[in-house]
Amino acid sequence: MLKDVSFGQYYPVESFVHHLDPRVKIVFLIVYIVAIFLAKEFLALGIAAALLLLALIVSRVPLPKVIGALRGILFLVVFTATVNLLFYQGDKVYWDAPAVLFEWKIIKITQEGIIFSIFLVIRLVLLMVCSSLLTYTTTPVSLTDGVESLLAPLKWIKFPVHALALVMSIALRFIPILMDETQRIMNAQKARGSSLDTGGPAKRVKAVVPVLVPLLVSALRRADELGEAMEARCYSDGKNRTKYKKLRFTWRDLLAFLLGAGLLAGMIVMRYFPVFAL
């Protein structure tokens, strides 16, 4: 079950996308998210999806990996789609049938609701694929370097940018470790007869406590050990610190940046001058 969580897992191959400057990738992700939320018609989403598909092919990350990442948000997608499907109010007619297809008590399935739900699902999927593409193609260190560099202006108001970046990098490093640990504790509790997937909601929540408490204790112990190991390796306050990896902006980055900018511009134009308005 926990093996499915693949967020933050770097997929080590060499590709155009892997070699992009992390800052460009982070900005691209933000631009992409804004763009798909600006989109108001299927053609716009289609263009965004095509661009992402291109990035995906170029990145050489295998498709099953990306689909694996989608499983994590499956519940969220199904939930939002269902809610919208059942309660969306709208009277537009898209095909030869009454606007309201089904009505019972507060539930009302409309043509517009169906279209809107599909639209929403595509949006969420694109969002998830784009963000997992970022983590698949960027090592945690360059990701944090990117964040650190992008937030650098905040140093001006004495915001501890370096510390924040380090916290992020350590958090990403510990995701797989804590996953394994959770699985181990769950197995240990199961071996002692506790059951995590039977009984009513109250019973299930109660069963989680004996997993969470040891997990928290062990996380704190690890934090302590890590602190010692970092100190022993001369970590102090981050002043006078140098960086081994330097971020470099190359022609690839310019290309990706222009693609992102083009997408955003296109989305803005299509929002106000729709081709096939919904």
Binding site: S169, R173, M230, R233, S236
Partner: peptide, 21 residues
């Protein structure tokens, strides 16, 4: 499992030398 700061071997080995500038 609780000595490394970075996820990639090379990046973690760089941590000490980075600290001393």
């Amino acid at each position: 499992d609780s000595q490394a700061v970075a996820s990639i071997v090379e990046d973690d080995v760089a941590f000490g030398p980075e600290n001393i500038g």
